[in-house]
Every structure is written in C-alpha cells, then in structure tokens.
C-alpha cells in the first residue's frame, strides 16, 4: 500500500508541475489506455460468461477478467481525478488514495470469492465440460 501512495504522489507532482505538452499527452494516453484496456477486459469477461459452456470455464473468465478490468478502470479514475484537479489540495489526493485502497481490497476480496465459488462447484455434482468432438 505504501507503493500505491508513493505512486499517487509522484503522478500528482508530475501532472501538476510539468506543463510541457508532450508530458501532458503522455499522461492522457496513460489514462485513456488504462480505461480502454479495462473496458476491453470487461467486454471479454461478459462475452466469456455468456459464451463459455460450463460453470468452471465461465468462472475462469469472470474471476480473472473482472478483477483486472476493475483494477484498470479504477486506476484510470484515480489518475484522472489527480490530473483534472485545478489545485492539488488535500481532498483530491485523499480521494485518489482511497480509490487505490479500493483496488487493494478488490485485489484481495474478488479472488477469494472466486476461490470459494470454485470450491463450492468442485465439491458439488457439476460435471466439467469435455470437448467430445475432438476426442472422438
């Protein structure tokens, strides 16, 4: 978590002090790339949950893609809130650090939920999907 806080402060200093257009463009591209990748991974998650044949494969899509896309979109939000602030005051930095805290909690909590669900499915009577077309 200390790394998060340091990263936020570093980004805040860079975005607020260096007004060179190239630097600002790079920061914008960073935010947009993070947001776009997050949306792409969430799209992949949705398609995976819809299209995969059985529970285990669906949870594979949901567990990984969901956590990663959440982390990426929240990162974009945090960086954008720092960059768009006119003056860098206490409230803005605190909000950005709080968003990074959410990332940490999701990073712990979401895989735990996925693990618990996988175990519940594994202990019950769900048959894993097998690709019979290639086997025969």
């Amino acid at each position: 978590m200390a790394i998060n806080v340091l990263a936020v402060i570093l980004f805040a200093i860079i975005s607020q002090t260096i007004h060179h257009p190239t630097v600002q463009l790079i920061l914008n591209i960073l935010i947009m790339a993070s947001l776009g990748l997050g949306l792409f991974f969430f799209f992949a998650t949705s398609v995976g949950v819809l299209r995969f044949p059985d529970f285990f494969t669906r949870l594979h899509a949901a567990g990984k893609g969901d956590t990663l896309s959440t982390i990426l979109i929240l990162l974009a939000c945090s960086l954008f809130s720092l960059k768009s602030a006119k003056t860098l005051d206490q409230t803005t930095i605190l909000a950005a650090i709080k968003i990074l805290l959410i990332i940490n909690f999701i990073f712990i909590g979401s895989p735990t939920a996925t693990h618990a669900l996988i175990e519940a499915g594994y202990n019950s009577e769900i048959d894993p999907w097998e690709n019979n077309a290639t086997r025969n």
Binding site: F105, I108, G109, T112, H115, A116, E119
Partner: peptide
Amino acid sequence: DNLIIRVASRFMVPF
C-alpha cells in the same frame, strides 16, 4: 478448513 479464506479474512477484517 479453508486456508485461503481464513488468510484473506484475517487481512480484510481490520480494514
């Protein structure tokens, strides 16, 4: 008997 859930809860509960 689930170690992963116990460790994750031990991390989350104080927060």
